[in-house]
């Protein structure tokens, strides 16, 4: 196991983060004190059993949620106590999010889905159309820009979701089980796409059960019961027990 050197070009820094939430009558202690540093250009996979707190951690890193205790710093700025408007702006411009179920707007075409965050960011229509087309070409969907999500396969939908996440040139791509709904071949294509993005300089943090995806990451963080139990470089592959639900 190789310790992480968190001193240079830090993008994300989480310090003793705790988070709990209500689920019906009970309280779920999703994170029980997590500290983590991610530098620019890293490709990080967060693995662990269901309920280990990986998605919650991802949400905290992306300013989707805020910690009850502890702090999260993004690009040197504490994002753990942002107002809703500030967090929204941060997600819009600096963070790209990809979800297991794609969550494309079913009523919009692939192109419109990609243009959506740019429209929100106030980019001129012509510029956002050009960039959306470029992004769709980048993810291999240049010929399917006018298709609705229902007319696309799962892999294609997820690639549109990736293109949408890249729309405003974020510093960080967060993906929550991006291959969870895809078959092996399609999942592999998506992994290749993410690796290409990372190679182009984008920091990627993924939550996954997929061993193949985890193995493609440079760094694998293993969580259990709301804590990080392993934090390893890619030369030390996670065990099946770390990844399996």
């Amino acid at each position: 196991m190789k310790p992480i050197n968190g001193t240079s070009d830090v993008l994300l820094d989480a310090r003793d983060v705790k988070r709990e939430y209500r689920a019906g009558e009970s309280t779920v202690h999703a994170l029980r004190g997590v500290s983590l540093t991610i530098t620019r250009g890293e490709f990080v996979a967060i693995v662990g059993a269901s309920g280990s707190g990986k998605s919650t951690l991802l949400h905290l890193l992306g300013a989707v949620d805020a910690p009850d205790v502890g702090s999260v710093t993004f690009e040197g700025r504490d994002i753990s106590h942002l107002s809703d408007a500030e967090a929204t702006r941060l997600r819009l411009l600096r963070v790209g999010l990809v979800f297991q179920r794609f969550y494309l707007m079913p009523t919009l075409s692939a192109l419109e889905n990609v243009m959506l965050p740019m429209a929100e960011a106030g980019i001129a229509p012509a510029a956002r159309r050009a960039r959306a087309e470029e992004l769709l070409r980048y993810v291999g969907l240049g010929e399917r820009t006018g298709h609705r999500p229902t007319q696309l396969s799962g892999g294609e939908q997820q690639r549109v979701a990736v293109a949408r996440a890249l729309a405003n040139q974020p510093a960080l791509l967060l993906a929550d089980e991006p291959t969870g709904e895809l078959d092996a071949a399609t999942g592999a294509a998506l992994i290749a796409l993410l690796q290409r993005l990372n190679a182009d300089g984008l920091t990627c943090v993924l939550v996954t059960h997929d061993a193949a995806l985890a193995q493609s990451a440079q760094r694998v963080i293993t969580m259990r019961d709301g804590r990080i139990v392993h934090d390893t470089r890619s030369d030390t592959a996670p065990t099946a027990g770390d990844i399996a639900p």
């Binding site: 702006r89 997600r91 819009l92 979800f99 969550y103 707007m105 929100e120």
Partner: peptide, 16 residues
């Protein structure tokens, strides 16, 4: 609601 949550997640403000 899920769809709207995603919109919020990708950066659409409340007012939007």
């Amino acid at each position: 609601l899920g769809e709207l949550a995603v919109l919020r997640a990708i950066g659409v403000p409340r007012a939007g």
